[in-house]
């Protein structure tokens, strides 16, 4: 080992994995802001889309067709859940809503392992073939695309939520379901729309994550934990902060690897930092006099 550790490659890699967390965290927060559900199945649904794309490519279909199919599959699953189940759970605790999405994740994991048995496979996008070299590390364009997509989504979502009537309706539903319904906002219609959008975004990120992380449903499902950490830092609201937090978590996790003696424990560090940060930001304790949904 070098006397002074070389952080260069780890910074570059950390930002790359951070972009993955940012993209997933963004998906979580987008759905949360429109439906107040944290979706544990977000990664799993994207993975099923990516596996569909992989299978279609194996059968000789053009890549672009397989990508569209992937996004359609993810959108369909997500919409179906939104229409059939999420709507009927809307009066329940947020934790219960989150737990129900674990049911979806299990359904997806079981289905994916049954349909696409566990043989070696990998998924590549054409953007893997080029890209710059920074600090001695090659960065494939897919990673840049992932980060750019996160930024674009963050901007686009803000525009939709704050500048359109649809966005207004979605936000009002998320903040108070009963009141918005009384005011004439259709829970079913906008709820389904929010889930469909989340599914489409999940499908796109699923393709990127399958390339950047691994085409394996469990791995992609449980990226949700660091992604949720990024979402928490942003208070489950601010999309730009989700991106920054995702990058930060990736960076901390990756740079911990420089210290080889404790590097197997390095995954704990970002979580500890996030919790400490939350403790600090919630240090002025408020007491709920009247508990309301979301508390």
């Amino acid at each position: 080992m070098l006397a002074i550790p070389d952080f260069g490659p780890f910074i570059v890699s950390g930002l790359a994995i951070g972009a993955v967390y940012a993209l997933s965290g963004l998906g979580l927060v987008m759905l949360y802001r429109t439906t107040s559900v944290v979706n544990f199945a977000y990664g799993a649904v994207g993975a099923v889309g990516a596996l569909t794309a992989w299978e279609l490519q194996q059968n000789g279909l053009p890549e672009w067709v397989s990508w569209i199919a992937a996004i359609l599959v993810s959108t369909a699953i997500s919409t179906l859940y939104g229409v059939l189940i999420a709507g009927r759970l809307s009066g329940r605790d947020q934790s219960v809503n989150a737990a129900a999405t674990l049911g979806v994740a299990l359904l997806m994991i079981g289905f994916a392992n049954w349909r696409w048995s566990d043989t070696p496979r990998s998924f590549s996008l054409p953007t893997d073939d080029f890209g710059p070299t920074v600090l001695g590390v090659r960065i494939i364009a897919t990673k840049i695309v992932a980060l750019a997509l996160a930024a674009a989504l963050s901007w686009g979502t803000s525009v939709v939520l704050h500048r359109t009537d649809t966005g207004l309706a979605m936000r009002s539903l998320a903040s108070d379901r009963t009141l918005s319904s009384v005011l004439g906002v259709s829970q079913q219609r906008f709820g389904a729309l929010a889930w469909a959008m989340s599914g489409a975004v999940g499908g796109v990120s699923g393709l990127l994550l399958a390339d950047l992380v691994r085409l394996e449903v469990r791995t992609l499902t449980f990226i949700i934990v660091p992604a949720a950490a990024a979402a928490l830092v942003a208070g489950l609201r601010s999309l730009p902060i989700v991106i920054l937090a995702g990058l930060g978590i990736g960076l901390v996790e990756s740079c911990g690897a420089v210290f080889t003696s404790v590097s197997n424990y390095r995954g704990i560090v970002p979580y500890a930092l996030v919790i400490a940060m939350l403790m600090w930001s919630h240090r002025s304790k408020s007491i709920a006099i009247v508990a309301k949904d979301g508390r």
Binding site: R214, T219, I223, A257, S263
Partner: peptide, 11 residues
């Protein structure tokens, strides 16, 4: 689950 494969490879 190989979730940290890139970091391990960099190491």
């Amino acid at each position: 689950d190989l979730s940290d494969a890139e970091t391990i490879m960099q190491q």
